[in-house]
Computed example of a mutant assay.
Amino acid sequence: MISQEDFFAISSKKEFEKITLKVFRYQYENNKVYQAFCNHLGKNPSNVKQINTIPFLPIQFFKSETIVSNSNQVQAIFTSSGTTGAITSQHFVTDVSIYEKSYTLAFTQFYGNIQEYCVLALLPSYLEREGSSLIYMVNDLIAKSNHKDSGFYLNNLEQLANKIIELENEGQNILLIGVTYALLDLIEYKKFNLKNTIIMETGGMKGKRKEIIREELHQTLCEGFGVNTIHSEYGMTELLSQAYSLGNGIFECPLWMDVLIRDTEDALQYVENGKSGGINVIDLANINSCSFIATQDLGKKHHNMTFEVLGRFDNSDIRGCNLMVY
C-alpha cells in the first residue's frame, strides 16, 4: 500500500517517477475501470516501465463510471458544474484528508502561511450548487486563515468592495479568489488601487459573459484592481491537486503533480516542450481514484516544467475548470 507520506514527501524528479510507477501498479490492480481501460490498450505493469507509457484515463469516464481504487466508504462526492440537463462528473473520495493535505501543502508551497491572509471568496456560481470541490477547499482555507473578516460573498459587491478597502487601509494581506465573471462585475462596480491583495481567478464565465482571451481578461482585471499580475488556479472536480499561476498564465504544479502534453492526433504519443496538445495530468493525491487523467484541455509545457492552458478541445463540455477560449 502507498501512504500519503510517499507522495507528499517527494523532493526530486527521480523520486516522482519511482512513486508514479508504483501508483500505476497499485491502481491497475485495484481500480477495475482503469484496469479494463489499460487492458484494452494492451498495457499492464509488465510492459509499463516509464511514465510516458502509462495509460491516461479520459476524463469523461468520471461521468459514467465509479472511479475508485479501494473498497473504503465514500466520504465525499465532488461534482462538476454543467449546463442544465448535462451529465456531470462525479469524483468519489474515500479519504477527504488527502484532499485537505494536498491543497494545504500546495498553498503553503506557493503562498506561504495561510494565517497571513484574509481570504475573501467571490464564487457565486459555485456556492449556488452542491458538491463543489473548490467551495470545500476555499471554505477550509477561510477557516484556516483564522481571520475574522475571511468569508464568502455571494452577490453583495458593495459590502465586498468596502471590506477590501478597509483591509487595504489596515495593511492586511488579502487573497481575493473569484470566478471570472464575478471579478469583472466587481471592477465594473468599483475601480481599485490595491497594494496588499492577490487576485486569483478560477476561470469560467458560467454563461454570464462572453468568453474572452486570457491576455485581454488579465489586462482588464489588472487595470480594474490596480495590480500588476493576476493569479490563477488550475484544478477540476476529477483531481485532488491544483496548479497555480502567479501571473501571465504560467502554471506550476506542486511536487506530487505533473502534466504531459499529448498529441491531439494520437493520444498515446507526446509532443515536445513548447508545442501545443492535450493536457494529461498526473495527480498522485488521487491515489484512491485515478492518478492519470486525460483532460479535454489544450495546453503546452515549457522546459522549466511550467505549463500554459490554451483552451479546450472542440465539442468538449464546458466544465468547472480554469478554461477560456484562446
Rank of each mutant, 00 (worst) to 15 (best):
Q75T: 14
Q75I: 12
A76S: 14
A76Q: 15
F78A: 03
S80Q: 07
S81P: 08
G82D: 07
T84M: 09
T84A: 11
G85I: 14
A86E: 14
T94N: 11
D95Q: 14
D95A: 12
V96A: 05
I98E: 01
Y99R: 00
K101F: 00
Y103W: 15
T104G: 09
T108A: 14
F110I: 06
Y111K: 11
Q115N: 12
L120A: 06
L120M: 11
A121E: 00
Y126Q: 10
G131E: 06
S132K: 03
L134H: 03
I135F: 08
V138Y: 01
L141K: 04
I142P: 01
A143H: 13
S145L: 04
G151E: 06
F152R: 10
Y153H: 10
L154N: 12
L154V: 12
L154Q: 15
L157T: 12
Q159N: 15
L160P: 05
L160E: 00
L160Q: 03
K163G: 07
I164G: 03
E170Q: 14
E170G: 03
I174W: 00
I174D: 00
L176K: 00
G178N: 05
Y181T: 02
L184I: 15
K191V: 14
F192I: 06
N193I: 11
L194M: 10
L194N: 02
K195Y: 02
N196A: 00
I198P: 06
